[in-house]
Design a protein around this nucleic acid. Structure first.
Lengths: 406, 406
DNA sequence: GGTTTGTTTGGTCGGAAAACAAACATAGCC
DNA sequence: GGCTATGTTTGTTTTCCGACCAAACAAACC
């Protein structure tokens, strides 16, 4: 790519990122924020309007933007607001759950437009079966679109270990091993690029990053407490991937000698202490009644002392893992997600206290966040990763990635 | 900064990085590697020669470059080789050890030019004392230079916890707490910028990165096993710093309930199992004879079964920490440094086996490296961090850092 | 001659700077 | 109230510069 074109492409991407993360603004605003002249900003915006990515609009004509606000007696010529055209591009994200298949559609502005769920009948569906069902869901949705070409691709979140090539190395909840699922799905989807497979914890993390704040926190750790324990490390705004894309397997950390259950066969693994099966096994071993997490939570809220003991031990075990993450990565925040996070909500103070005891006085403890009701699903994160890939498609000059904003 | 100038500055930096990391080459080589035309490469090189950073030279005139090599019957006009001018800039790095003060000088090509060591008489010197001694060392050295202006600054490696502001939060080996050492030193040094204070493990990691290979490995973890256990995570080529610059305190990871000693007062901390005091305490508790690491190693090499037991336990404990790092970060390699790494050299196979047992079959184990004799010191790493900061002083266009290649 | 290197010349493109035109708000005056 | 002058901010136009590219050319070897 020739140099001047590269500069222009980068500046276009910077304008798009600004409109995405900050919201609608005028050419003059863009010029100020990007530190270019108004004429340059005008030129870039003209290109983007030409390409159908951006449009002018009148805030007063939009009922949603409560009028009266944003008008602190503005003098001078009124600005023309600019915004991304939502329908310019659509990004698909899917999640292969143990019992259901989820698909969502995110538009150019990063907002979720559609969601689809299909329950899976069989206990251990084959990869081919899943690929076919997912492909059918996608093609059914795409056929409803007036402009199918706006679909830019699909990312798939998988509850297991995925490598860079798109192979699933292991998905315990479905009993899969070494499956080249990406290729399998791509063969069943014509005209739609299967961009990449991602770990479900990474996808969850991306969705939470978007939900909590667009780009404020740069250093965070995300935990996904389910039947296994997944995780994801955000550093410098990026998600750590590791050499083979296998980073973040927090649940496999050997933190002790035993545990309450054995999920993956690794002795003393973190998830043997704090995952859903671990909580239930512990509760049951102590003589507790109930076989589901809901049962346990009911007992806990009813004041069952056994349940309380399980919670105390759980909080202590969790804090050990959090301490490891804290001293190693010094995150600004740790987000605890997944169904088991409901225990964390009931022991927040306890976890924080235990964590602090395991840290030196000089180590600032991270903020612990437990998402309330509006927890975002992995499929949204998967779609957002694709969305973000399109917007982040520029780096140091001359090192452009393969994707194009096109 | 205006745009065209920014592009030029970045290309100049790219040329410098090439000459630094790959070695001397011609304008045509640069044009090919950077994907610009020969005319552009020539223009950039002319600027750099003008600035006194680069020079032409004749390889045949240099005795060091064994002739006959690099001449596989080359046709066409012979190329003029270009290289960095070593004396263009000098970078200082210091290390505040428990018993000595170390200073080294690195030139523009990243090679160590001078080293100075001063033994410290007092057991717990005050920060002011150290600052004054270090300032004296630096000014003494600078006064020997014909061109003092080539000194671009100094980085100081500290065996303790350092935050971004240059404050030392805690340095157990010297019994320091909350000392604004950077300011203290800067006041005693006129004309030389005290760039930053760095953790000694991070500095060690930087030196090893340079020594092992300039930029091949992007994902690695470095351990420094001494009286405490420091560490450093390299991801995407960068060293992880964390929110407050406190990342990498691997020794403080709570990996168990006890340990053989208590270095920092954190129960079950990793360094209570694998640091030098831990090894000696364990050996002594079992009835072993000897009070220094050298004594222990002598017993071990003599076939003392007690010493062997200590080694076995040590390797097992170490592998647990390595497993945590591996599943969390998926590094390509783990470098085990420090004096205690001599144990690792004697148990390499054992460590690798224990580590593999703690990982899932799908997780590729990292390569374990134990530096041989030529272990680089933290002061070299500190200087190299400053050196690298000058060369990495460009990123996405329009987001330039404060440093200039000047 | 063939080949590779390094330089020169003309051209293109993106952005900066400054002037200009447009679209308001306000103030003042009738 | 109606009208005009003024000030302010926005968006566009014009002119210019600097960086790179493409192609031709000169130089230095085999």
């Amino acid at each position: 790519m020739s140099m001047p074109l590269a500069v222009r492409q980068m500046n276009e991407a910077r304008v798009l990122a600004r409109l995405l993360n900050v919201g609608p603004m005028s050419r003059a605003d863009l010029a100020r924020e990007l530190d270019v002249t108004r004429s340059t900003a005008g030129s870039i915006v003209a290109s983007l309007i030409e390409a159908g990515k951006v449009e002018e609009f009148d805030p007063k004509a939009v009922p949603g933007l409560n009028p009266g606000e944003n008008h602190p007696i503005r003098t001078g010529r009124p600005a023309i607001q600019l915004r991304l055209i939502p329908d310019h591009a659509l990004f698909l994200g899917a999640y292969i759950g143990a019992r259901e298949l989820r698909l969502c559609v995110v538009d150019f502005t990063g907002t979720v437009r559609h969601s689809f769920v299909e329950r899976l009948p069989k206990v251990y569906p084959s990869p081919e079966d899943i690929a076919q069902r997912l492909a059918d869901m996608v093609t059914t949705f795409v056929s409803t679109l007036p402009m199918p070409a706006t679909v830019r691709g699909i990312n798939v979140a998988v509850p297991g270990i995925v490598d860079f090539g798109g192979d699933i190395l292991r998905a315990p909840s479905m009993n899969w091993r070494r499956t080249s699922f990406r290729e399998m799905l791509q063969q069943r989807l014509t005209g739609i690029c299967v961009h990449r497979l991602v770990n479900d914890a990474n996808a969850f993390a991306m969705a939470e990053i978007q939900r909590l704040d667009a780009e404020r926190s740069q250093e965070a750790v995300f935990l996904l407490l389910e039947d296994g324990v997944g995780g994801c490390v955000q550093s410098g705004g990026q998600l750590l991937e590791g050499t083979n894309g296998l980073a973040g397997e927090i649940g496999h950390m050997p933190v002790g000698d035993g545990g309450h259950c054995s999920h993956t066969g690794i002795a003393g693994a973190f998830e043997n202490y704090v995952s859903r099966p671990a909580v239930l096994a512990h509760f049951s071993n102590l003589g507790g009644i109930g076989t589901t997490l809901g049962d346990y939570l009911d007992r806990l809220d009813a004041g069952d002392p056994l349940a309380q003991t399980v919670l105390d031990v759980w909080a202590n075990d969790l804090s050990r893992g959090l301490a490891i993450l804290t001293v190693l990565l010094n995150p600004e925040r740790i987000v605890i997600g997944g169904r088991v996070a409901q225990l964390a909500k009931r022991a927040e103070l306890q976890i924080a206290t235990c964590l602090q005891q395991r840290l030196m006085a000089e180590t600032p403890p991270p903020a612990l966040l437990v998402p309330e009701a509006g927890e975002a699903g992995p499929e949204i994160g998967a779609a957002l990763m694709l969305h973000r890939a399109h917007f982040e498609d520029f780096g140091p000059l001359g090192e452009f990635q393969s994707l194009s904003i096109g």
